[in-house]
Amino acid sequence: MATVISNPVDFNVEDLYVDLTPSLGRRLFLKCEGFNFSGSVKIKAATEMVRAKERAGGIGPGDTLIESSSGNMGVALALVAASRGYRFVCVTDARCTGTARRLMETFGTEVHVVTEPDPEGGFLGARLALVQRLLEKNPEYLWLNQYANPGNWTSHYRTTAPAIAEAFPGLDVLFIGAGTTGTLMGCATWFRENAPSVRVVAVDTTGSVTFGGPAGRRLIPGLGTGVRPQILDPALVDDVVYVSEPDTVRMCHRLAGRGFLFGGSTGTVVSGALDWLTTRDRDGLTAVAVAPDLGASYLETVYDQEWLARSYGPELLDVLLDA
């Protein structure tokens, strides 16, 4: 039967998995969350946060939403706002891809780009500071604050986690990238309550402070933070794996070489999952990793050799793309 929708948020592929065994040589299933009109898993949290605000009577037609985002959440909120008649202001930074910025603007979003990081909070700290300044100048703006908003994780508690459990009733380990930690916290909470034997492993990027690591340069948007998200509860996470950006790039190109074009966040998650599985030499585990995004938005960065050479150096580029 045909699927017929009248609102873009009504379409999202929930049950698509890629068996990465032929591509990686390890038994790992990848839950693809990018097949919706925003192109990423963020459509779930964006929709949940806006609908919660509507149920509380805190928003009406023509109102203006504001949020900080490195890209994917901004695109998702731009789509949701356009579909529901709201204005949207997104505060992003220089790492946001040109494609993501153009997508937001196409949906009618007003985009502010922070070009200098905060000395302590990095680009995220600088973005949050600009959000506060804009709120002071425009008190009618409504800040969703994805870093503290429970809708960011409850959307995955209701949808993502039970969908994985239904598809893989014998699941042993689940790998989830840590950005705002909405997907991570929603899934970790659900599995702790309903299937506590499942090991939940967070995959973070080197240079992120989310789990207490030292701050460092990060050029690929998506995972990692310069300010620890308020919704994070580390006690719900069984293990943390860090992935360097060169390894992220290498994995993205490795998957692209098999015809799978995924985004930087997905490359990080898969690289971390493969490292965790290989280190423990546990081939018999049933393992699932969540792929937050697709790769089209990264054609000018992760998949562009000039950008890679400029960002990481030509010598490193040769190593990264060595087949």
Rank of each mutant, 00 (worst) to 15 (best):
L184I: 02
W190K: 03
F88I: 08
W276V: 05
L285G: 05
F37E: 05
Q146G: 10
D283W: 11
A289I: 08
A323M: 14
G121H: 12
R55E: 14
A309G: 11
E120N: 09
R218A: 01
P139V: 05
P22R: 09
D318L: 12
P229Y: 01
L16N: 02
D204S: 13
A56P: 07
E306G: 06
P169F: 13
L24G: 02
Y298R: 06
T154R: 10
P196N: 12
Y298A: 11
G224S: 08
P196L: 01
G222W: 07
F88E: 13
V249C: 13
D10P: 05
T99W: 01
D293N: 01
V114P: 00
R282M: 09
A82E: 01
V209P: 05
T106M: 08
R133G: 08
V203Q: 04
G71Y: 15
P169T: 11
A81N: 12
G224D: 07
V290F: 00
L320M: 15
H253W: 15
V203H: 10
G207Q: 06
P150D: 10
I231E: 08
T266P: 14
G264V: 09
A188D: 12
M251I: 11
G264N: 06
D63F: 03
L77G: 04
R310W: 05
G259Y: 02
T181E: 13
A188K: 12
D118S: 03
N138M: 10
A287I: 08
W153N: 14
A167S: 13
A195N: 05
T210S: 06
R95L: 08
S68Q: 11
D247P: 00
G60T: 04
G257A: 15
A161Y: 08
V75H: 10
D15Y: 08
P246W: 15
N149G: 07
A273V: 04
V302N: 00
